[in-house]
Design a protein around this nucleic acid. Structure first.
Length: 268
DNA sequence: CCCAAGACCTGGCGGC
DNA sequence: TGCCGCCAGGTCTTGG
């Protein structure tokens, strides 16, 4: 579930409770995530920073980095040390504050790695495209990268090697905002459409992060699940409903195995 | 390199 | 009420 705005909201929620704290111990209750969790002893190291790259959270330690992906259903919460683990709790990072950071992931699509050296060179991060909210990502970049690409515009936007952090929900939304049909082949996108798409991606994600910030749950003892941006979604999950702009019934199709919703009148 | 499809996993839902 | 099948989602992997 976590799309980029939720990962960023999670980061902001836990960072004040984690940064500057020393790890007392790490307990792996269930190592079965996307890849088996294997961690060296980390007791005594301090969490120096909590940053985000794409949908990964990076916990920089005095030595080494913990690289976490929440997958589809992963979440983090802070609970008192000693709280018994429940069914889908995988890892507890016990801190010297008396709290521990608990990773829960029912569907086990998430991952957790310990990286000894430069995390940016890790195989999972090395080939990722730019951050969508960075200056590097703009219409000119999108246009250049889309030349020669025959995939649907939506699949192209969701390709993390092109630009990171755009999941199914926000891909649908950004395409609607930009007035671009999801099935349009990437190489047929005009420069103007690429400009609108890049702008729409930035606006959509920034608004969702802002929204997450305002509804930030209490990560201490709470369920740790920041709410979706549901109320604001204009096309995702609205197949058959009227387009908010022109009233036409929204189309529901599948592109690249993913649910796609669009307005055939507003999006070309 | 490019692209499509497969794989992974389980809670929740619709249908019977 | 219970059971079954299907869907959702991200991204790595495989095969053409």
């Amino acid at each position: 579930m976590p799309e980029l705005p939720e990962v960023e909201t999670t980061r902001r929620g836990i960072e004040p409770h984690v940064r500057g704290r020393r790890i007392a111990d790490v307990r792996v209750h269930d190592s079965r995530l996307r890849w088996p969790v294997r961690l060296p002893p980390l007791g005594g190291r301090e969490v120096v920073a909590v940053t985000r790259r794409a949908k990964y959270l990076l916990f920089a330690l005095t030595e080494g980095t913990l690289l976490l992906h929440l997958g589809m259903s992963g979440s983090l919460k802070l609970v008192p040390r000693g709280t018994a683990p429940a069914k889908h709790d995988h890892v507890d990072v016990e801190l010297d504050s008396g709290s521990m950071l608990r990773l829960t992931d029912p569907r086990r699509f998430g991952s957790l790695h310990y990286v000894a050296d430069a995390p940016a060179q890790h195989r999972l991060l090395k080939r990722l495209g730019p951050e969508p909210l960075s200056d590097e990502f703009d219409g000119a970049y999108l246009h250049a990268r889309s030349r020669g690409r025959k995939v649907a515009a939506k699949s192209f936007l969701m390709d993390a090697h092109v630009v990171v952090g755009i999941g199914n929900i926000y891909a649908n939304e950004a395409l609607f905002t930009a007035g671009v049909r999801p099935t349009r082949r990437a190489h047929r996108l005009s420069a103007a459409q690429c400009d609108r798409l890049a702008g729409a991606v930035k606006d959509t994600l920034a608004a969702a992060i802002r929204h997450g910030g305002t509804t930030l749950r209490d990560f201490v003892g709470g369920d740790g699940q920041p709410g979706y941006f549901r109320g604001e979604l204009e096309v995702y999950g609205r197949e058959g409903d009227p387009c908010v702009r022109c009233g036409t019934r929204l189309m529901g199709i599948r592109t690249g195995q993913r649910a796609t919703v669009y307005c055939r009148k507003c999006q070309r």
